[in-house]
Design a protein around this nucleic acid. Structure first.
Lengths: 350, 350
DNA sequence: GACATCTCCGAAAACGGTTTCGTGTTAATA
DNA sequence: TATTAACACGAAACCGTTTTCGGAGATGTC
């Protein structure tokens, strides 16, 4: 491996000092035209590129952003990530990704690893375990060190930092209202264990919509599934023992599996039962029937998160007020597809 | 923002030299037990963590891996990425991801950015445009600088480096053979433009299987679709003007869309026409009918790629033979589902 | 001719570590 | 008591930059 060209090498070859080379390459006024041209030509010829690490050490900024997400084989998180990467790259930042795999420990370890100079700031969504434990000391340590942090989607009010979320309550409410408007009256909710922040908020929205319509919330119509479940018994029993004409699901998978099961049990979708999900992933688009779903605007969230973070990172040097944090709410939109077309329940599909 | 504790700070507080602190924290034999305990206790108390950047500069190694992939909102690439991240993290490496977005320019720019000291090696899959252009100078520059490079899936024989791939030709052949064994005789192929390396190889396998079965390859049964297409006309015309009882698709999306279209046109799947796809993504599992597909073993590929890269990175210091490159072929497996169950064409589904 | 003023460049410190080598102190040995 | 070796530590170089400061030489001013 041939060692890379350094300022020192150029200085030696051209018989000038290192500082002269450095200045010449930045086109400093201090250096004469002749010398600059000579040095620049030499650098170009031998394809000199400054060493990023040395610059980072000197400048105390890395132009790296740390992203910690629970999972990557997951449509929503990949779209957010794409948004982050896109914006960051545009601004000359690189993105270091760590997967917490929904584990508290891995979240902590990865944060500590990156916090020691490798990154200028963090963008993250909390792991399920972290939300369950409600232990945020690792986040607190980082913010206390003055490292900017932006939380998205899975956030917590216990940490003061920038946040970007969707209005999960409003989304849950609007989706439910949408089902009510199409004439559904007995609306079930398929959700996760309640410690997941976003699910809880969607549930609140669901309940408020029902109440606003003068309907009672029937706890029996709420099915709580483990976050990653494989067996179908629980939901099958639920289907067989209850009557309902619509289901709101807090994610895409729950909805798709619900629809399959409903069809398998002889129901028509959306004729007998309508479905609305969350996360406009690939499944929603290509399932049969295709799924009406709440688009969480992942890419937009990612872009905004990156923008907020980079602003904070660069403001550190401008001495802006570091205590003013913003929470940005990204508007969501309902993508209307086949699984919940307008119409009376009981009518034929499509 | 409170500045982080450095060796110098500790040295000043404890009235010893920086070198003593450094050695004490590494438990060097040179330092007396007393001094070590005092320094270590102090460091622990004030939560000293060495600055990664300084260590990188000194050691000329960053413990960062650069990953450049064409897309992230894509099941196969995310699984590969998960494999990379998992293995890398285990070995204490971080992963910097750049998305080339199938663009040659972005691939080049990102590589150059990272090659200036930010990473110890690259793992990448070539962008579509790069494969189309057959311009690999950016890869060559990097390898000539002695930066280890591992290519996966979308590779090229024009660059000498480690590679990890599946045997696309064999996979195409086996999948086709599988269709032949189930009694299908007129097998169509839905593929991409031919400059995509993997598609081309799968096509070769497809043809070989047909020939081995004594069947002629009918070029009319090969449909070439743009990599990301939205309109359905081309395929609809294809369906209406040709007779076939099975389709091999080089990816999941082509298969799902094909199935939907077939069903829309009144065919039964797999009764009238069987489907086999590539990429065992979420769609394959949840579509109706579910899709028989070639599992590309993304996670395994990622793990192996990371392992090969890290070995090369760490061997640079052991002076191993840098010219011996390996190409590892990951065995694939066919995931049998509903879309191509064994049986005579024409029979009822399921 | 004395002095101020530019112009152009280099020395050196700094970023935060690691590591080699030298040295003063102490204790063991002759 | 003189010699020596072990021990414990510090000085300094180094990784590759940036940047401040100072100085040498040329030029201009009175």
């Amino acid at each position: 491996m041939k060692p890379k060209l350094t300022l020192k090498d150029i200085a030696r070859e051209l018989d000038v000092s290192i500082s002269t080379v450095s200045k010449a390459l930045k086109n400093s006024e201090e250096i004469s035209k002749d010398t600059k041209e000579k040095i620049q030509a030499f650098a170009r010829l031998y394809n000199y590129k400054p060493n990023n690490i040395a610059i980072s050490l000197k400048n105390k900024r890395t132009k790296n952003i740390g992203v910690i997400i629970p999972d990557i084989v997951h449509h929503f998180f990949t779209t957010v990530f794409r948004g982050i990467e896109k914006y960051a790259n545009q601004r000359g930042y690189n993105v270091i990704v760590c997967i917490s795999d929904e584990s508290f420990d891995r979240e902590v370890i990865n944060m500590e690893l990156l916090a020691n100079g490798s990154i200028d700031g963090f963008i993250m969504a909390l792991s399920a375990e972290t939300q369950k434990r409600q232990d945020f000391n690792h986040l607190r340590e980082v913010t206390e060190q003055g490292i900017p942090l932006v939380l998205f989607d899975r956030v917590t009010e216990h940490i003061a930092c920038d946040k970007v979320i969707i209005d999960d309550e409003a989304a849950g409410r609007d989706a439910t209202r949408r089902l009510l408007e199409s004439g559904r009256r007995r609306i079930a909710l398929f959700t996760t264990q309640s410690y997941l922040n976003v699910s809880a908020k969607r549930e609140v929205g669901y309940k408020k919509a029902l109440e606003a319509a003068g309907l009672e919330v029937d706890p029996d119509l709420i099915l709580r599934l483990p976050y990653q479940y494989e067996e179908e018994q629980a939901s099958e029993a639920f289907f067989k023992s209850r009557k309902f004409d619509a289901v709101l699901c807090v994610n895409e998978i729950f909805a798709i599996r619900g629809m399959r099961l409903a069809i398998k049990l002889g129901m028509r979708v959306p004729g007998d039962v309508a479905f609305i999900g969350f996360t406009d992933g690939i499944l929603s688009r290509y399932s049969t029937p295709s799924l009406t779903t709440v688009d969480q605007r992942g890419e937009v969230m990612g872009e905004r998160a990156a923008e907020m973070l980079i602003q904070k990172v660069e403001d550190r040097f401008d001495e802006a007020d570091p205590t003013r944090f913003r929470t940005e709410v990204i508007p969501v939109k309902l993508i209307e597809r086949e699984s919940a077309v307008l119409g009376e329940p009981g009518k034929a599909d499509g």
